[in-house]
Design a protein around this nucleic acid. Structure first.
Lengths: 194, 194, 194, 194
DNA sequence: TATGAATGAGTCTTCATTCAT
DNA sequence: AATGAATGAAGACTCATTCAT
């Protein structure tokens, strides 16, 4: 039974996540993680061979615990506006706690990968988001709840402004009102006279 | 006369910029720059003490050679729509050559800085951009060329979606149409029925 | 009853022999042997404390399963030439399968030992060989089958050219005819006009 | 001018040669060499990246300072017997100072190399030796100084018994008379009634 | 006997940085 | 200004070895 081993791995990931959120990806060394996790060098290497491996696994855990799509499916009868509100609330929250997030580390990590083909976890998540938004906007337009818009253009605007805040917001000390203003503006594009 | 010294510094910055664009900030070592610039270790240290110093100076040079504001001032009589088109064209171009840009390095550099107080070059540039946009949108609204919008919200949307494409676009292999779609969508916010 | 333990030890030695033959002595770690034998770290340490111990025991097993001398004793009535042929055939075969042999590992192992006093397995085997040859040559000379030769000198030539091929042959890609030529030449020293 | 650097390299090679002769190839670490040469870690790495590189260069230096062939050419008029004596004397000397030699290290080094194609320094030296002996024996046979022998077989016997003593002699504590006995025996093959 | 997690020491390797020339 | 040899610290990684289970 590898119960103990599994616990250690979880413990390592937890400690590492903390470090990554604070320092980004490349600043974190195996040694840092040893110390943070209270393990010896060799002990850590029993479980992981590199910070990249830890990071990867950590991200995969996170991604698989999310799943935006399902949200949508189970509510086919809700009003599009209600679903939109929920989704945008989530986006707003995530934009607001910029500081604690892993966005910096994610950026560093994935930009140091060979993204040829682009089939890594981040891209998959991006595609899922695009899909989710497309379905929602189509649904809203069909029901006449949303204005007739250029769907792809609106999706781009939503996703990239969101990512922009998450990433750029770690570089410059931005106004706390920004997330809510952006969300409001997006709503007004989809729902005139909101 | 320190003409020769000045030339060497320029040469170093040029070579370093190349490295930073390709590899990001932290991946570039003083040694790399030595090699790229064809200088010895000691030779490089005559001019700069760290990669950060080189980067800093490089960025400052760039920032001071741009200056969005001036554009605006000298055209007080142009139509707001024309100025808008010009600005957005520039944004679109910069979004499109994502790959070659320094955005990754900038991100790494400034995120490793102690941005307490936030008075670094990047932030200054951000403030300038905000200011430029604010003036332009006000100008357009006064002239009735632009719709009545929530100025700050629109500015946020413009700047962060732009930054989002520049940064996130280095992580995931995005559609080439995105910049133009975003630009179009922004125009349609400011100018109904564009 | 330690039957199971004994089997495990044999299994370990077999797997280790394989590794040693392929990689030499020092390149093989306890970890390698664990993996090859399908044992855990602790499991291996139940039986052996070091690669040296395994190697030692392995070699001893091999040496005691050979025993050149006996060959000779039981055939006191055979012609010296016949015995010579048999022995040299064995030598030739061993020279020919240079690649598969443990010679490299043996060389590494014994050269890292403190051979002061020189009473290790390899030396014993050497002494046995010398003895065997001495008896045979004397026997052949007494029966007038062999020429009158400097016995020790011929023994040296036989043993060291044999060892030379086995060891040096792993370093340089030698002609396949060499073993047979050497054997022929040795015969011609002992039996003029062979 | 890189005079100082060159001197350091020579110094490193000298110290390393010492270590290799005493401990073999694989037992010597970069750290050992640092210490022996009185250099810091980084200092050593300025000049060499691995023990293999040092060893290689060391061996190449040695090989190019020898050149058996020339010996032969310049004495076309000497008696074959005289040349033979000289060559065999050299072999005898080299067999006798077994202990101090690099043979062990050479064995380890080249056996850990990928000798595919077999065109490394050791093999070249082997080919040169074979060639030298072939010329000498042919010369001696033409002048009727040497017996009619199977040239290749004799060459094999000479070279491999020589290598056998050099290598095997580091493993077992052999009789000091062995080199001279071997040399004598070889002479008696070439010159009957020597 | 056997497991496999954990330790800790040792080596490798890379850099920023200094300094005599 | 510039060279490049040298330093020393830091991090990566690997193993022999131990120990609770």
């Amino acid at each position: 039974m590898n119960k103990r081993g599994q616990e250690t791995r979880e413990h390592i990931k937890k400690c590492a996540a903390d470090l990554f959120a604070r320092k980004g990806f490349k600043q974190v060394t195996m040694k840092d993680i040893c110390v943070a996790a209270g393990l010896s060098r060799g002990g850590l290497y029993c479980h992981y061979n590199s910070t990249g491996q830890i990071f990867q696994e950590m991200i995969n855990d996170m991604m698989s615990s999310q799943d935006m799509e399902s949200d949508l499916k189970i509510r086919q009868n809700q009003s599009a506006a209600a679903i939109l509100n929920e989704l945008l609330d989530r986006y707003q929250n995530e934009m607001e706690d910029t500081g604690a997030s892993l966005s910096l580390a994610i950026y560093e990590f994935f930009s140091s990968q060979d993204m040829a083909g682009g089939n890594h976890a981040l891209y998959e998540q991006y595609l899922i988001s695009v899909n989710t938004w497309r379905k929602l906007i189509q649904y809203g337009m069909e029901r006449k709840e949303f204005c007739q818009v250029d769907i792809d253009a609106v999706i781009d605007l939503i996703i990239f402004s969101y990512q922009g805040v998450r990433m750029y917001g770690r570089l410059v000390p931005v106004d706390k009102e920004i997330p809510s203003r952006i969300i409001r503006q997006i709503k007004s594009i989809l729902i005139r006279g909101d």
